[in-house]
Design a binder for these strands. Sequence first.
DNA 1: TCACAATGAACAA
DNA 2: TGTTCCTTGTGAC
Length: 310
Amino acid sequence: MPEGHTVHRIAALFREVFLNQSILASSPQGRFRDGAALISGSVLERAEARGKQLFLHFESDRIVRVHLGIYGAWDVMTLQGDSVRAGSAQTLSLGAPRASRRRLGEREESFDADEPFPPAPRGAVRLRLETSEVVADLRGPTACEVHTPEEAASVVARLGPDPLLDTGIRGQREFVKRVSSTSRPIGVVLMDQAVVSGIGNVYRAEILFRHLLDPFRPASTLPEEVLVDLWKDWSGLLADGVKTGVMLTRNDLDSAGRKRALRVAKDRYFVYKREGLPCRVCGTHVQMALMATRKLYFCPQCQISGKASS
DNA sequence: TCACAATGAACAA
DNA sequence: TGTTCCTTGTGAC
């Protein structure tokens, strides 16, 4: 996934292309046929992200909640250039108009494709949202459901603060309170969406490294100033991820290195998926351990044994 | 062709 | 703690 930054980008893109428009909804795959029928033809009134959850508010108090899970993705295709003309039957009969695709999910890409618009669904499309100029295909989500406002509210109520929504001191206080009230390992707690929204397996490992924290240390033993730093760091990383579409967590790069890392995934991280490779700071081999059923990467020197006994 | 991993989380026991 | 679900791309054969 699609960690928190991806979902905020999707919400922003949907506001850009779908807001206040009547949307055709369908489920080419069939597994969301009833839900799609409930909303099809109605106007999208709001599109919002909270952590990893996307909420699409349609008329008549119908809210579609989408959670991409570990490999869900949206494929968004828009007509380019003379979009209105290109979409007309007359132009279509002349040949395929040019479409632009943008995928937002486990990997983002954009490319041009010479194919008719709207393109035929490829693969298992759970939900297709469509106007005359834009098609968005959803594949592989963990959750895609139509909610009442009450049901949506109860989902939101179970989520920890999101730095993009809970700005200022309130979000920070809520984060500090929720983290410090549990003795579970900080590496587990950062992944818990009831504690803080939007952090996934990549950001978890990278944030812990950036603060030279032992992932196994009980959260309740961390000083408040460390927790404040963690919150501020997550806020900055999330904002940066939303802006660039990339999880670039290294803060040891010059501008050329940063530019390269935006292109090359292997250059983006301190420890994530770098098991056995030398730590970028101390050269010790990065280790991997399972934590909260997920692969956790860390530097045993920087984060555990090498730390001053503070 | 096939096994497997992947940025996630709900559920059972 | 372990199992299950969702889908696709990759890399080994």
